[in-house]
Design a protein around this nucleic acid. Structure first.
Lengths: 167, 167
DNA sequence: TACCATACCTACTAATCCAGTAAGGAATTA
DNA sequence: TAATTCCTTACTGGATTAGTAGGTATGGTA
């Protein structure tokens, strides 16, 4: 279990998808604009997320990405694991005899910790974050604003592009 | 809260110190040999740990490092925080208006997660790992072996040096 | 006292990873 | 057909990791 900026990008992007799950696919350009992450970098991250089935892409105009499963069935651990490949486990097993067991001991303690951490993050789902009080309200407000403008400029993207340009 | 190999090194090294807390200081050379981490790299890590008061150094022959506080008062979060400086928080506050609040929202959700993670790791102390069943036994066995040889070759270091050389 | 083991400090370096750039192809809708 | 979007690959500057090297300071021991 590793945790870096990369993992944060992936998690926040997934939260974005979860927030707009009922409004249809979200484009990477949107996320790129909204969260200030480069588009191509996002594409690389989403390639990994897609490989794990966490998201699914919809091509063509009006397309984008949506969650591969309900938000309640996607854990934070899965997301981080998909993009931040695991820390290399100590190469204790097999090589040498671990200097009389001591290395094995601390190694074992680390695995213990690592396991507890994973279980903790695996217990946290996307849904558990967006269902917090206050979140839905903000999200809904944004969606209604977007959909109001969307009736004039069909896809959600048009609105986001305007926002991105500061209009 | 960031988590990388660096943090793992620091945590396992601290576990090592905790395991031998009652046997006196542990030298970095010992840890280096036992866990396969370069000596100078360990020195850099321990400089940071010392700055935070997590360890204290004892100079001269027979010296080494020992815990700066009881193992029950040192949390995993503190150790990781000491060596793996925090991930840069999104520079959302102040700059621009966060594109209509959306960036602020996912940012806020991330902070929420980050906070929960920190609290989790802050609740885990070194003591909570070394007090697990089975750990003390192995540790004690190693210590008695060490001290038996130590009566012939005074400081603990002599034994470690032999082990390191594969004798 | 001289010597040695250890912490402690600073500067340098090779390798790796992060984050982004660039360029294009493939699928879908209008 | 044209526009939009996903999807893929290759390249790149910079940061970080992990290690090297070379010292100084301090304390125990012969």
């Amino acid at each position: 279990m590793k945790l870096s900026t990369k993992g944060r990008y992936a998690v926040t992007a997934m939260m974005d998808l979860a927030l707009h799950d009922h409004t249809g696919p979200v484009t990477l350009a949107d996320i790129s604009n909204c969260q200030g992450i480069s588009l191509s970098y996002l594409e690389q991250l989403f390639a990994k997320l897609r490989k794990e089935g966490l998201v699914e892409g919809v091509r063509g105009p009006g397309g984008g990405y949506r969650l591969g499963r309900p938000a309640s069935q996607i854990s934070i651990a899965e997301i981080i694991h998909a993009v931040d490949e695991a820390i290399d486990v100590t190469r204790c097993l097999g090589s040498k005899d671990c200097h009389g067991g001591e290395k094995c001991l601390t190694h074992q303690l680390w695995e213990d910790l690592s396991h507890r951490l994973y279980e903790f993050l695996d217990g946290l789902t996307l849904a558990s974050f967006i269902s917090r009080p206050g979140v839905r309200e903000v999200s809904r407000r944004q969606d209604t604003t977007a959909s109001r403008i969307a009736t004039m400029f069909p896809p959600r993207t048009a609105f986001s592009a305007m926002v991105a340009q500061g209009r």
